[in-house]
Design a protein around this nucleic acid. Structure first.
Lengths: 336, 336
DNA sequence: TTGAAAGCGCTAACAT
DNA sequence: ATGTTAGCGCTTTCAA
C-alpha cells in the first residue's frame, strides 16, 4: 500500500495525498478527510526510506550508543533526548554491538537519514584521522576515552568527566581515611578504555602519597560482568589479605566487590572500604550504599547536546569539556 | 559523494560501481580495484535509505524494545540477537520511548526496511484488532502482558512467563514459610501491565490460603523507579508495622524495599522477608541476595526467535508459549 | 564484462 | 486547490 494506491482509490493525485499526510495547507477539507479515511482503512504505513531519501535535510541528531544495557547510560540518554527535543531537533538512537565500527555506523546513519550531527556515547575513541574523515557532520564524543586517540584535538569535540582525575580523587579519599594498602579492580590495564584512565589516577594518587604501586594490589576483571568482578575480588583478597580498601573503576565492580568481601567474611566498610566511580542511582540502594564519584549524568547529556548544537548552528567549533564528578561518601568507606 | 560520483571519477557506469560495492561477480579485477580505491579515497558511505528502498526484501527481523535501559531486557536482547544470527537473519533493533506507539513503530520499520518479521519486547499489549491490522508481517510479543488484550489469540504469537502463576508461586513460598501478613509492592493495580498480572497471583495465593487481601497491605509505587519503590515501602511499613514479608512485582522494587526496610530498622530477612519476580543477575550481588522467581531470559529470547522464524518460513502459525520461571530462594526470605 | 534504463516510494518545485 | 514532473541514491533486469 503506497500513496499511489491511495491516490488512485481517492481519485486524486499523489501530491495531494502527500500534502494531506504531511499536514500541508492548501488542501480542501473534503479531500483531506477522504484521503485520511482511505489511508486509515487501507492500513497505509509510510515508507521512511523513501521519505528520508527525498527529503532535503532533516532536523535530526543521531545518537550512537555502544552496547545495549549499559545501565549507566540510561540517564545520560534520557538527558540527551530531552535536550535534543528542547533544541528543536529530533533524536535518532542507534545501538551498535561490541564488534561494530561506531564511526562507520554513525556515518551511515548520518548519510541515510541526512542528520545534522552525531553524538557518540561510550566506547573507546581509538581512531585515526583517516577514520573520522568519512564523517561529514559535526559530532561530539560523550563519556569517551579521549586521551588515547591519535586525533588532533581540534578535529572533534568531547564531553566527559576527567577520568584520571576522578580516579585520583577517589583514591585520595581512601588515603585521607588512613588507608595505605589499597587494591584496585579494573577491566584491563592496557585496553585504552576509561578504566585505564581511572587506573592512572590510582597510580598517581599513590605515587603522590609516597607509595608505590604494587602489582599484587592490581587485579584485572577482563570484563564488566558482575561475576568477573566478584571472582577478581576473591583473587585479590586471597593474594593480599592485608589490604584495607579497594578502588573499583566502575560502580558495578564496586557492587560485586562488596558482595565478594562479604562472602569472604569481611564486612564493608568495617574490615575493608570500597570506593568507585560512576554514581549510578542503583548503588544508592545497596547495603552499604556505595561510595563513589558520581558522574553528572544529566549535565553530561545536556552539555553534549549544547556543544553539538553550537557546532551545527555555527556558533562554535570543536570543544573539549570536562565536567566534575560529585563525591558520594559514607556507606562503603570508613577510616582505616 | 554517491556511486554516481565514483562512477564518473572512475570512468565506469554506476551499475559497475554498484556491482563492486555489493561484491557481485563479473567485474574485472582491474575495475574492481580501482572502484574500491576511489570509494575509499572519496570517503564514500552508502545511503541505506536508497538501498532499502530499492531492495526487494531483506532477511531482517525487527526488534522493537520499549524504553532504553530496562536492565532486565539486556540479557533477552542478547539472546535474541544471537538466535536471529544463528537462524540466518539479521536484526534491526529499534528503541521506542514510553509515549510512542509500538505497533506503528513496528509497522513503519517493517515497511521501511522490508523486514520479514517483528519481535516486540516488553510493554502492554492493549491493542485492538484494527491496530494490529497494519502489521503485514508475522510478529511475536515477548514478555508482554498478553492477558488483557482484546485480540483473538490466533491473531498473534507470544512468548513469556506466566506472570500470574509466578506471582502466585512467589507468594506461596512466603506462605509456606509461615508468613501471613504479606505486603505487596506494585506499580499500579489497574494499568494492565505485567505488574497487575503478578498482583493477581498474589491475590489468588492469599485467597487459596484462606486469607483475604487487605487493602492496607497493597502499596502502589506509580513507577519502576527505585526511589518510588523506596518511598512506597516506607508508607507500607508505616501503615502496617505488623507485616512480616513483602512481595514485590519486580527485582528493582525488591532491591529498593530491602534498602528501605533496613533504613527503617528492620533487618531482611530476620524481621521481614522480601521476594520478587525477574531474576536479574544484579540482584545476586546485593546483601542479602534477593529471593526471586527468575525468568529464563535466554530461553525467552531463543523461543521468541524460534517461534517467529517458524512463522516466517511457513512451518507454523501463531502460538502462545509460557515458559516457567526458576525459584531463587534463600537470601531475603526466611521463616516467619 | 559492462552500460543503459527502469523504477523503489516519496517530496517539492512548478504549473495550472 | 490540485496535478505534473523531476528527481533522491541505489539495485537490477535487460542489452550489448
Amino acid at each position: 500500500m503506497t500513496i499511489k494506491d491511495i491516490a488512485e482509490s481517492c481519485g486524486v493525485s499523489i501530491s495531494t495525498v502527500s500534502r494531506v499526510l504531511n499536514d500541508h495547507p492548501d488542501v480542501s477539507p473534503k479531500v483531506r478527510q477522504k484521503v485520511l479515511e482511505t489511508a486509515r482503512a487501507a492500513h497505509y504505513v509510510p515508507n521512511n526510506s523513501a521519505r528520508d531519501l527525498v527529503r532535503a535535510r532533516s532536523e535530526g541528531i543521531g545518537l550512537i550508543v555502544r552496547g545495549v544495557g549499559n545501565p549507566f547510560f540510561t540517564e545520560v540518554i534520557h538527558a540527551i533526548e530531552r535536550a535534543i527535543d528542547a533544541a528543536g531537533y529530533s533524536m535518532a538512537l542507534h545501538q551498535i554491538g561490541s564488534d561494530d565500527d561506531e564511526i562507520m555506523a554513525g556515518a551511515t546513519l548520518a548519510r541515510s537519514k541526512k542528520l545534522k550531527g552525531l553524538i557518540f556515547l561510550g566506547g573507546k575513541g581509538d581512531y585515526q584521522s583517516s577514520d573520522i574523515a568519512i564523517l561529514d557532520v559535526p559530532f561530539v564524543c560523550c563519556t569517551y576515552t579521549v586521551r588515547f586517540t591519535p586525533l588532533p584535538r581540534e578535529s572533534y569535540s568531547s564531553v566527559a568527566i576527567d577520568d584520571k582525575m576522578e580516579g585520583y580523587r577517589a583514591v585520595r579519599m581512601l588515603l585521607e581515611k588512613g588507608h595505605r594498602k589499597i587494591g584496585v579492580l579494573l577491566n584491563s590495564q592496557h585496553d585504552h578504555s576509561i578504566g585505564e584512565l581511572r587506573y592512572m589516577g590510582y597510580c598517581e594518587a599513590l605515587s603522590d602519597a609516597g607509595l608505590t604501586v604494587e602489582e599484587s594490589l592490581v587485579e584485572e576483571t577482563g570484563s564488566f560482568a558482575l561475576s568477573d568482578a566478584y571472582e577478581a575480588t576473591g583473587r585479590l583478597v586471597k593474594r593480599r589479605p592485608d589490604l584495607t580498601a579497594i578502588f573499583t573503576i566502575s560502580d558495578t565492580m564496586g557492587m560485586a566487590a562488596i558482595k565478594a568481601l562479604h562472602d569472604l567474611g569481611r564486612a564493608v566498610p568495617e574490615d575493608c572500604s570500597v570506593i568507585s566511580i560512576d554514581g549510578m542511582d542503583m548503588t544508592n540502594y545497596i547495603l552499604p550504599p556505595l561510595a563513589t564519584m558520581a558522574q553528572p549524568q544529566q549535565e553530561l547529556g545536556v552539555t553534549a547536546v549544547g556543544t553539538l548544537v553550537d557546532m551545527i548552528e555555527g556558533r562554535a567549533g570543536n570543544r573539549h569539556i570536562l565536567l566534575p564528578a560529585t563525591p558520594r561518601m559514607g556507606g562503603s568507606v570508613a577510616p582505616c
